[in-house]
């Protein structure tokens, strides 16, 4: 079953990526890289329909560029750098860690710590309230009472 799903995914992604242009690869490895790069990179135009005049062919041009660079023997990293240096981190679905995104990456952890320490504080306070401390006078009273109850 899992194999079938994987196969279906590979099949579908290659159809989606291929679009109207057929790319000829030297080997399967190149093709897999092309597919995974194309999926990793965001289509800048499609993100916003209101840019009605943006040329939807851009995605195709960028795919051709990726294809060209794979054929030239560029590494995935070089290709991603090429696009990021022109279009910014925005072309990546997964934002890289940098000054601008550090809050984005760490906010869940910060929130967890904040909520955790708040809850811990409440718990501690409740514990304190359920076991009020007694001064020596009160303790003596209790001892006296207990002594009374105890049979001689």
């Amino acid at each position: 079953m899992r194999l079938l799903i994987t196969l279906m995914l590979i099949l579908f992604s290659s159809i989606v990526v291929a679009g109207s242009v057929q790319y000829e690869f030297d080997d399967v490895k190149q093709e897999t890289r092309f597919i995974s790069l194309s999926e990793e990179l965001r289509c800048l135009v499609c993100q916003n329909q209101s840019l009605a005049d943006s040329n939807a062919a851009l995605a195709q041009d960028l795919r051709s560029e990726v294809f060209k660079q794979i054929k030239q023997g560029k590494t995935d990293e070089q290709i991603i750098d090429f696009l990021v240096s022109r279009y910014g981190d925005f072309v990546l679905y997964e934002p890289p860690m940098n000054l601008g995104t550090v809050l984005l990456w760490f906010s869940p952890l910060i929130l967890l710590i904040l909520i955790g320490s708040y809850l811990f504080g409440i718990l501690r306070q409740q514990k304190k309230q359920s076991q009020p401390e007694l001064n020596t006078e009160q303790q003596a009273k209790i001892n006296a009472l207990l002594n009374k109850v105890e049979p001689d």
Partner: peptide, 10 residues
Amino acid sequence: AIDWGVYGTP
């Protein structure tokens, strides 16, 4: 235009 990071005109 790709080198200029253009993704839509104008």
